[in-house]
Design a protein around this nucleic acid. Structure first.
Length: 821
RNA sequence: GCCCCGAUAGCCCAAUGGCAGAGGCAGACGACUUAAAAUCGUCACAGUGUGGGUUCGAGUCCCACUCGGGGCACCA
């Protein structure tokens, strides 16, 4: 046994032992422990692990190891999100096969994770690029297809000219591609979609169930993203036409204030109406539409952009007032939100008043908010007030008028209460190679024909001979042998769909695949799902707050509806760890502030880095590597290790004879530590372990000495607690203390409440809330006795001298507060 | 523009409405040592961003503001 704490030595010593005994095997048939499912977001295999992974997996491991220590059978699996653009791009650059490149990275990351001593169950590993996995992507796609939840449509989609592929709405950030920051443009294409909007209400409403269990930030981001608005659809007839304009509005109470209509320039209705107009109007419209199509999102979203538009020289009839109002087209109305048309109420809408001012249209106030008339001030008012100039709505409040207007419109058959969502359907086709082939065959005669589910997987053809260079159409379109098949329906010549699925499809259900990762019979085994799912604790970065989590929630709800799972939310609790920064900003090679994980591990050791991640602060806060001290963590671990080494007694289960003071410190620690970990205050938990270490050091050097059995008890609990953060050190401590591995499963000691009962406490005396005196009192002291003691205090007498006492608050045995005037 | 989160010592961070300090970094001093490192120990430092309010008592609850971070945003 070594004399000194040697990081390298203990790292080399314990890894093979754990491989042998597999402390975190979650598949033992006779395992009677209750279950917990702890999941870390699986990594993308691009290069080796970095500091961000190190934090995420250190924190996830604290939770997994905590439950293991508490006696649970913890499933803590890991896999790789192995399909996707970065792998493909990197492969193109180096002329490699994306598959080889991916698997090499996986091997490297896996080795790093093992060295990092993550408590993963290595028998449950999966890779999404494995046909064994993506076969079930296809199978699920076909299930969605049967339910009408997977469909193809032509529309103007987000197009990244650099990645040469379409993007989901969620992958466009501020008009830029989230991957490469290129300006995203629009392109009319026929693409596959998942009908997320069918689930919009449930995706929004069910967030309430997660209140307090998910970070409120994520909940609000999801709510914002789904963006439900309540209102009404109102129909406006068009003068001298049998067409009508249906608008969506959240303010039907302002119907009488509508002084114009605006259609999205790129909407079908706009085109129809323009076609009926004079040649001059048609020309102006065509010209305007051209300009709109050319504009990208960056230009379109510019906040201070002037309002533009074209008057169609046609009029609509307000269904309530009967007034005729002019019909315009403009690009400030979006074709794919609501009905693609609005009623312009300039007095009470910022955008409409801008348009009205630009075009010289009438501004008619219908809600008197007490502010200046918008027609005069030029500033729209949107607050509550009294309805005016609005016929039967006059005199009502905003809320009442909204209800009344809907009622009237419904009774007249010219409108209906309705709601709209910001959320759009999920575009899942990608024109790239390295992804899951869409299991559909296109036949000229039969149209879309799904591949039979028992014919899956449709495997990805070998990449050799294919041009993976992005060129706007799928590389699979050139894989003739693969592409050309006979139609399953009529037997005629047909072609496979050559697009691949968005990789977010892969990650939308992987947490279920871990239940039976090798199954060829099911996507996941329903019996295992009953046992383990949903995930008790999910851990990952807030970067996935919208995309991945929304899609996974959507999948779960669909799987629930087709009877595959009996729950509707996939992740019961969510922890978002912060980022690891260096000198205030995200690490990057170009910034020159990159800290290499492997280097840190070499210098300080695995345990010190893991401990540093946990101790740096609350898990959801960012860690600035410049603010933390892994060297100090290593020093602490050595200090803890020496405690175990100094213990000079035989292993026993009977600690009753130990020193009461030391035992009390240990048992207080147990209470505080578990409380801290359960609340995910890992930094506080570590601080408590440091406190116990300090107390034990003192006991050994200046107190009862290393032979007292209470010192052993404290050292053992310390080792068990440290197993959450520092697996190598704690295992070695456990051995020094004369035990067999694994310390990770040893189980915390049972708290002896009798040791925690205080005989006396320190009572505090305040005058006007300020501390003036304190003394040790018996716990059983009465209010009257304590008050008498307080009043007798010289310090108190001095303070209250000459003052009038108005009140005395006594909270025996802790506190007396004397209020004076 | 709307919504959310945060602000405590030189620094990172603790504190069920009840003594502002658990822990750490950096710092000073001391013990051990021929010396240094390592180790062990002792000490100092803020009244909680600003202004109000509730309360016997506010870092903690309420209101307004400042600063920082984040989300949504021509979404009708």
């Amino acid at each position: 046994m070594q004399e000194n704490y040697d990081v390298t030595e203990i790292q080399n010593k314990w890894l093979p032992v754990w491989d042998e005994i597999k402390p975190f095997d979650s598949s033992r048939a006779d395992d009677a422990r209750p279950t917990k499912y702890v999941l870390d977001m699986f990594p993308y295999p691009s290069g080796d692990l970095h500091m961000g992974h190190a934090e995420a997996y250190a924190l996830g491991d604290v939770i997994a190891r905590y439950w293991a220590q508490k006696g649970y059978n913890v499933m803590h699996p890991i896999g790789w999100d192995a399909f996707g653009l970065p792998a493909e791009n990197a492969a193109i650059k180096r002329g490699l096969d994306p598959r080889d490149w991916t698997y090499e990275n996986i091997a490297q990351q896996k080795a790093s994770m093992r060295r990092y001593a993550c408590s993963f169950d290595w028998d449950r590993v999966l890779q999404t690029c494995d046909p064994l996995y993506y076969r079930w992507n296809q199978w699920l796609f076909l299930e969605f297809y049967k339910k009408g939840l997977a469909y193809r449509k032509n529309s103007n989609v987000n197009w990244c000219p650099s990645c040469q592929t379409v993007l989901a709405n969620e992958q466009v950030v501020q008009g830029l591609c989230e991957r490469c920051d290129s300006v995203v443009t629009k392109k009319a294409l026929t693409q596959w979609y998942f009908k997320v909007t069918d689930y919009a209400d449930r995706l929004l409403d069910d967030l309430d169930q997660l209140e307090g269990k998910w970070p409120s930030k994520v909940l609000s981001m999801q709510r914002n993203w789904i963006g439900r608005s309540q209102g009404a659809n109102i129909d406006f007839n068009i003068v001298d036409s049998d067409q009508k304009i249906s608008v969506f509005t959240t303010r039907p109470d302002t119907l009488f204030g509508a002084t114009f209509m605006v259609l999205a320039a790129d909407s079908e209705l706009a085109a129809n109406l323009a076609a009926n107009a004079s040649d001059t109007v048609q020309q102006a419209f065509e010209q305007y539409l051209d300009g709109v199509k050319k504009a990208n999102d960056i230009e379109r979203l510019a906040t201070d952009r002037k309002k533009t538009g074209v008057f169609l020289e046609q009029y609509a009839i307000n269904p309530l007032s009967g007034e005729q109002v002019p019909i315009w087209v403009s690009d400030y109305v979006l074709a794919d939100y609501g009905t693609g048309a609005i009623m312009g109420v300039p007095a009470h809408d910022d955008r409409d008043i801008e348009f009205a001012k630009a075009m010289g249209l009438e501004i008619k106030m219908v809600v008197d908010t007490g502010e200046e008339d918008p027609a005069v001030s030029g500033i729209a008012t949107s607050g509550d007030g009294v309805i005016v100039n609005s016929g039967e709505l006059n005199g009502l409040s905003k809320q009442d008028a909204i209800a009344k207007a809907i009622e009237i419109a419904e009774s007249k058959g010219t409108g209906v209460g309705s709601k709209n969502f910001r959320l759009r359907d999920w575009l899942i086709s990608r024109q790239r190679y390295w992804g899951t082939p869409i299991p559909i065959i296109h036949c000229e005669k039969c149209g879309e024909v799904p591949v039979s589910q028992d014919q899956l997987p449709v495997t990805l053809p070998d990449s050799s001979g294919l041009d993976l260079q992005p060129k706007g159409t799928s590389p699979l379109g050139a894989a003739d042998q693969w592409l050309n098949v006979s139609c399953p329906s009529c037997g005629g010549a047909a072609k496979r769909d050559s697009d691949t699925m968005d990789t977010f499809v892969d990650s939308s259900w992987y947490f279920l695949r871990f239940l039976s990762p090798h199954s060829e019979e099911f996507a996941f085994d329903p019996a295992e799902a009953k046992k383990w799912a949903p995930v008790d604790q999910y851990v990952g970065g807030v970067t996935h707050a919208i995309l991945h989590l929304l899609y996974a929630r959507f999948f779960t709800k669909v799987l629930h509806d087709i009877g595959m799972v009996d729950f509707e939310e996939p992740f019961t609790r969510l922890l978002n760890q912060g980022m690891v920064l260096m000198n205030g900003s995200a690490m990057s090679k170009s910034r020159g502030n990159l800290v290499r994980l492997s280097e840190q591990l070499d210098i300080h050791g695995v345990d010190a880095i893991r401990l540093t991640m946990a101790f740096a602060g609350p898990p959801e806060d960012d860690i600035d590597w410049a603010d933390v001290s892994p060297a100090a963590s290593a020093k602490f671990l050595a200090r803890a290790w020496r405690i175990a080494k100094d213990v000079d007694s035989e292993p026993t289960a009977d600690f009753a004879a130990g020193d009461k003071g030391v035992r009390k410190a240990t048992h207080q620690f147990l209470v505080g530590f578990e409380e801290a970990i359960e609340a995910h205050k890992f930094n506080v938990g570590v601080a408590k372990a440091m406190e116990l270490t300090n107390a034990l050091r003192k006991a050994i050097d200046q107190g009862v000495g290393p032979k007292d059995i209470a010192v052993r008890e404290g050292a053992e609990e310390l080792a068990k607690a440290l197993s959450l953060f520092a697996p190598y050190t704690s295992e070695d401590m456990w051995q020094l203390l004369g035990h067999e591995p694994a310390v990770a499963l040893a189980g915390f000691g049972t708290v002896d409440q009798s040791l925690l009962v205080e005989q006396s406490t320190v009572a505090v005396v305040q005058v006007d809330g300020k501390l003036r005196d304190k003394f040790e009192v018996d716990l059983s002291i009465t209010d009257a006795e304590l008050e008498a003691m307080a009043m007798a205090s010289a310090a108190v007498q001095r303070t209250i001298e000459g003052k009038e006492i108005v009140n005395v608050i006594v909270r025996a045995p802790k506190l007396v507060n004397i209020a004076t005037k």
